[in-house]
Nucleic acid binder design. Structure first.
Lengths: 327, 327
DNA sequence: CAGCTTTTTGAATACGTATGCAAAAACGCT
DNA sequence: AGCGTTTTTGCATACGTATTCAAAAAGCTG
């Protein structure tokens, strides 16, 4: 960084003051056509770029947004990250990536977010404990939970209409003539799990059906175990709804390995519509999130000076059923 | 950010000077046990964290490292990103995520990297043109190409021993009794493609075999197309080596959909060992990158004040063959 | 305890930029 | 040309921290 080109040097070359150089690079400042041209030429020649550190220091605001991820277990998230970075870039923000080892945001991660006074935080694949939520509130850092809800945290949530989607899936399966049902879930406490379970079982009940519920943890391996278990214990049902596509693959593979045919012997539905769902070994019926709109809304909430600091609400957005070969 | 707690406030509360507060938070500065305690107490009480903007401004160096990704097409990269963030966090660095739309780093991305004067850049899934490389050099920003080589760019590269690995794969297939071979490649110009192609065909030639070469672009879809093409044109060989696992899945699925059995009728090998390769529909034999060591070396090169600015060399690290069910 | 060395401390300064303020320039109008 | 108005410009300052320098405090030795 010792090689830094400063606004002063540009000013000297252009024959103007540092203030003028600054104004050229500050949106909404008034500069004459002529000096703007001189400054831009000089800046180009020297390869000048405003120093973000000095800029953020003086303006007292950051052009960084923190993106908190847990892992890469589910390809759904990298995809959403891409959307976020693209949208934020358009608005002039850069992305500070926080990758937590644990489910929980760690102190060191919070430190990073606070040290850079990020303009906002998107929590994508980790949970925010009350403690974390308090921390964010205390320091007035706008935060949005993406694809998850933490009741009582007071943080904004942007999520898919999980409950209604699960109801739709239940109706679909009933419509296909299924009469016995299994739900394979995710980590206990995860809002996606809770909401989808609720919608699915309630809708089934409404139509007079029960539902077998199996525990899981959002992984392929857990899906496979559950699938195998279903067969080996002889408790296979007409239909299986998995809380995520990733788990559905595991279930499908366990079925396939044991000679069970989908959809002839059992209908299978997932959730997320990640890329592999359209691959031929799966060709999975699933429910697609409105990722674009979820991302847009998240950013809107985050960057709105009023709404961002209001008490958090939960925003559910409708997605769409994708019918493929497993139903 | 209006709510910023400053070192001055901490100093006042602790009854010391701002300098002392700074020293407590600066590694390697000398402070007495007593004042350190006073300062830490006050800092804790106020929730003080050093402002990174002021800090980077005065020290003239950044604790940000840029991570440049293109997309999420290949699950290999998100996985490597995780490793990078974890390792960098240990060393006190945070990650600025740059997600380019295009194959090429765009000006806006470069701007961001320069505005933050990042301590280094890891280019993971995009290519650096000469122009980009020049830019990075001009501004003395250390850069490492991860899993790719751009000859003549003068940038450091950290890559898997592609050529030798491909040779090993060729020998494996020959050892399995294969006598005709197909290589399904990636985007033309991609170093992984070029190196793996070279190693594979050369080793085959050494043993007196030829090799059919098919074009690709690293995607599942291209793999599928190639697999279908192989069958339908009647040019199926004893063995197929795909430049990445992702392409191998496509090929496998095209075979499966057409009743061709792997490995009985054709042996199939991929490259990368991403998670899905161990899933039961694929159970793919492949070659695993030494990702941990690649990441460690990349960071070492990046942060070493001497080596980082030397002329770039190419570092090839050996991985390991993973034998599964497709060979 | 004097005299010396070492450690710790605070005052002052600089990093590169944005911005309030007042001066200067440009413009509009009679 | 002269005056009032608007636009543009430069000066000076502040953001929050690390660091130099000199002064003060603390150790050490005999």
């Amino acid at each position: 960084m010792e090689n830094q080109v400063t606004a002063h040097e540009v000013a000297k070359l252009a024959g103007v003051s540092q203030s003028s150089v600054s104004r050229v690079f500050t949106k909404g400042a008034s500069v004459s056509k002529e000096t703007r041209k001189k400054v831009l030429e000089a800046a180009d020649q020297l390869g000048y770029r405003p120093n973000e550190y000095a800029r953020s220091l003086i303006t007292r605001r950051s052009s960084l947004v923190g993106l908190v991820m847990k892992g890469v277990s589910n390809p759904y998230y990298p995809h959403a990250v891409k959307k976020f970075t693209a949208e934020l870039k358009k608005k002039g923000y850069s992305v500070l990536l926080i990758d937590t080892d644990d489910v929980e945001l760690q102190m060191q991660d919070i430190d990073a977010l606070l040290s850079y006074h990020v303009a906002g935080v998107v929590i994508m694949d980790a949970t925010a404990s009350f403690q974390t939520a308090e921390m964010l509130k205390r320091f007035r850092i706008p935060a949005v939970l993406f694809n998850r809800v933490v009741p009582g945290s007071g943080l904004h949530s942007v999520s898919c209409e999980n409950e209604e989607a699960a109801r739709e899936i239940a109706r679909l399966l009933i419509g296909r003539g299924c009469e016995s049902f299994t739900y394979v879930g995710g980590r206990e406490g995860a809002s996606t799990h809770i909401e989808r379970l609720k919608g699915f079982t309630e809708e089934l009940k409404k139509h007079g059906f029960g539902c077998q519920v199996l525990p899981g943890d959002f992984t392929y391996a857990a899906g496979y175990r559950n699938g195998a278990e279903l067969i080996e214990s002889g408790r296979l049902t007409d239909a299986v709804f998995a809380v995520t596509d990733l788990m559905a693959y595991g279930i499908y593979d366990a079925f396939r390995d044991r000679g069970i045919r989908v959809p002839e012997q059992v209908k299978l539905v997932g959730f997320d519509d990640i890329e592999m769902s359209s691959w031929s070994p799966y060709n999975l019926s699933t429910y697609v999130h409105p990722v674009d709109r979820m991302v847009a809304l998240s950013i809107e909430l985050l960057l709105d000076p009023v709404r961002s600091l209001e008490d958090g609400e939960v925003h559910y957005l409708p997605g769409e059923m994708i019918l493929r070969g497993t139903t």
